[in-house]
Design a protein around this nucleic acid. Structure first.
Lengths: 93, 93
DNA sequence: AATCTATTTCGATTAATTTCTAAATAGATA
DNA sequence: TATCTATTTAGAAATTAATCGAAATAGATT
């Protein structure tokens, strides 16, 4: 189930842009929201999905919540993609 | 737009399984459909999306349509995923 | 304690995706 | 040519996802 969640998370362009933003440094939820033409509640929804997929972590500081990228989750995805290239006949998900 | 299409295509588990199947060899549409608990029309819909994303190609032979995997399309996705790991500060999609 | 600030959660709405049945296409075969 | 076989396309129903406004939470600040 982990990979489905990861792939669904990154299949949305808003969520990919959030990840790209967090690649540079941590941002608080409000700072992230400010960069999109979306309401804060909507961005919060996307952050929740990314968090559930393990792609970001949160860290509370003062009354802000800072988000950090966790790219290590991509390992399974990379393995799956490579396996398609390598023709080893494994027919399972 | 290409990457969004690729990622959306592989965000569905049925479509990932189709790709895994095609990794082994080409199959006709009906043979693929036979492996899923879905109507042929539904599988045809998934094949269409995979084709649009460039992940499979089709080849007509007799009155069958054979499908082949084209994993080369993953290059952009791999590049994107790697770029998130490497912290190079590029904030664009 | 009262209020301010940052953020999430809830409920509703709209939009997109998946699935189905039925009909259409198109190439083989009788 | 009539029909069989493989497959797609069209249209409708069901499910899931994205968005918003309003209310709730929780930690600072006064």
């Amino acid at each position: 189930m982990a990979m489905s969640e990861t792939l669904k998370a990154i299949s949305d362009p808003v969520r990919r842009q959030i990840l790209e933003l967090l690649k540079v440094k941590s941002y608080a939820a409000g700072e992230i929201a400010a960069r999109f033409d979306l309401k804060q509640a909507t961005v919060s929804y996307h952050l929740k999905l990314l968090k559930q997929a393990g792609l970001i972590t949160e860290r509370k500081e003062k009354n802000y919540i800072y988000y950090d990228l966790n790219a290590s989750v991509f390992e399974d995805v990379l393995t799956w993609i490579y396996s398609l290239g390598k023709g080893n006949g494994d027919d399972e998900k």
